[in-house]
Computed example of a mutant assay.
Amino acid sequence: MLARLERFRLIAAGQAEVLVLIVDSDGLLVERRLRAGELTCPPCGAVLAPWGHGRPREVRGDLGARLFVRPRRSRCTACQVTHVLLPEVVWPRRMDAAEVIGSGLEIAALGLGHRQIGARLGLAEGTVRGWIRRFRHRSEAVRRYFTVALVALADDPVMPEAAASPLSDAVSVIAAAHRAAALKWPAMNTVSPWAFAGRAIGGRVLTCTSPTS
């Protein structure tokens, strides 16, 4: 309740808030759901309405591919908070696709350093180092979140064995939760574990709060 009152205070003061909402990568599906009133505001639960588009951005995909994204924007019909609808294949404030970052984190879980990972992925060492540092900082919170998700998704959940580091533990449980989700919903097999992870945790794989955009 206090958080909601603070949002109304910011709006009243003319400081419009913008949040990120991770959605399906199928833009046509998202548009249909948005116009049908099927998307709701996470803070207050009211219906989201169309509200233009975010700025176009280029995201680096796997094997050097370039993804051009222009996220849809929406606005809550009740609390007036604006949401950028970001497709699950990308994460907030990242120039690389979720699958690319996830591949780097999987390699890091095997014990390789950022220089080796950067060379394998063809990316700057500093970029990879930033991913790893942020994920290490978030690893325990991510591990807990996806452990709960695994228990909720699997009929007979099998917890991954303890790994060499908290980062590796977090990577393992994300993979296990994705497998459980794919068994429950076969269509999830077409979604990468890292797109699944980003959508499940609201884009907060590398950041602890919902970022602005």
Results as ranks from 00 to 15, higher is better:
64 G>E: 10
42 P>E: 03
186 P>G: 00
84 V>R: 05
211 P>I: 06
74 S>M: 12
157 P>R: 08
149 A>I: 10
125 E>I: 05
47 V>L: 06
171 V>K: 03
10 L>Y: 04
51 W>V: 08
8 F>N: 09
161 E>N: 05
30 V>K: 06
75 R>N: 10
68 F>L: 15
124 A>L: 06
178 H>W: 10
94 R>W: 06
69 V>R: 10
3 A>L: 14
192 S>G: 00
54 G>P: 02
39 L>Y: 03
201 I>E: 03
112 L>D: 12
150 L>Q: 08
65 A>S: 05
109 A>V: 15
209 T>M: 03
32 R>E: 01
142 V>W: 07
91 W>H: 01
9 R>E: 15
46 A>H: 05
188 M>L: 14
107 I>L: 12
157 P>N: 00
130 G>A: 04
170 A>I: 11
36 A>R: 01
177 A>C: 02
54 G>M: 13
175 A>P: 08
109 A>Y: 11
158 V>A: 02
135 F>W: 10
185 W>E: 12
88 E>C: 01
209 T>P: 05
182 A>Y: 09
46 A>W: 00
195 A>F: 10
24 D>V: 05
201 I>N: 09
63 L>Q: 13
61 G>I: 09
37 G>F: 03
39 L>I: 01
110 L>F: 04
25 S>Q: 07
193 P>D: 04
176 A>Y: 01
191 V>I: 13
128 V>E: 02
149 A>P: 03
208 C>G: 11
131 W>D: 08
163 A>Y: 10
118 G>H: 07
86 L>F: 03
39 L>A: 08
98 A>F: 07
48 L>T: 09
16 A>K: 15
52 G>Q: 14
107 I>A: 15
39 L>P: 04
49 A>Y: 06
72 R>Q: 11
179 R>H: 12
68 F>V: 14
5 L>K: 11
29 L>I: 07
127 T>D: 09
136 R>E: 15
